[in-house]
Amino acid sequence: MSDWLSPEEWTAVRLSLIVATTAMLASLPFGVGVAFLLARGKFWGKSLLDALVHLPLIMPPVVTGYLLLIGFGRRGPIGQFLYEWFGIVLSFRWTGAALAAAVMGFPLMVRAIRLSIEAVDRKLEDAAGTLGANPFWVFAVVTLPLCLPGIVVGMILCFAKAMGEFGATITFVSNIPGETQTLPSAIYTFTQVPGGDAGAMRLTLISIAISVAALFLSELLARFVGRRIAIE
């Protein structure tokens, strides 16, 4: 394998996997929280939150990337705060790539989880309440397990989106080999240099393989989880 891929290509593959996995896992708690708010909450500004979450889905990715750069760059208001208080730097780092990927994948994740929360039978939650479970426990032991298939789907969608994210990433954290050069950026770079066709094709094949594997895994998980909680 390592003979087949050059070290730089191998680095891009590994980085992509790390970025996508981080983006997926880090946005999961927020995804569940926001999905729950949108599915169940009744509060002022709910449609505003809904629109905000979905914005990255409709805006050009470059615009999202540019907004991230303004907000989370070293001089941006949030970036500055993060650096001064926590020493976290996002711009031109792989963590920034993960943030960009997470933001782009977030609407897909929230959508899938929200739909599955809406599908949970509230009557089961009432039943749990009469058995002594307070709202927190009802959520933890009834609602959450019952929408597990939706959460799995949401995670896979987010992961897939993160693997393929290009526009926002390259705008926010650029295309630095070994730090922010993910698979799509690497493929793009190959297409920009003479004789890069072979490298672009190799990475494309790997990209396809990872996507297909993710899809299979999600099918498998969804079936396993679905069998366990088959609704009557």
Binding site: D121, K123, D126, A127, A128, V142, I229, E232
Partner: peptide
């Protein structure tokens, strides 16, 4: 009326 057992 419906048993409302937890399916999971």
């Amino acid at each position: 009326q419906e048993a409302r057992l937890f399916p999971h």
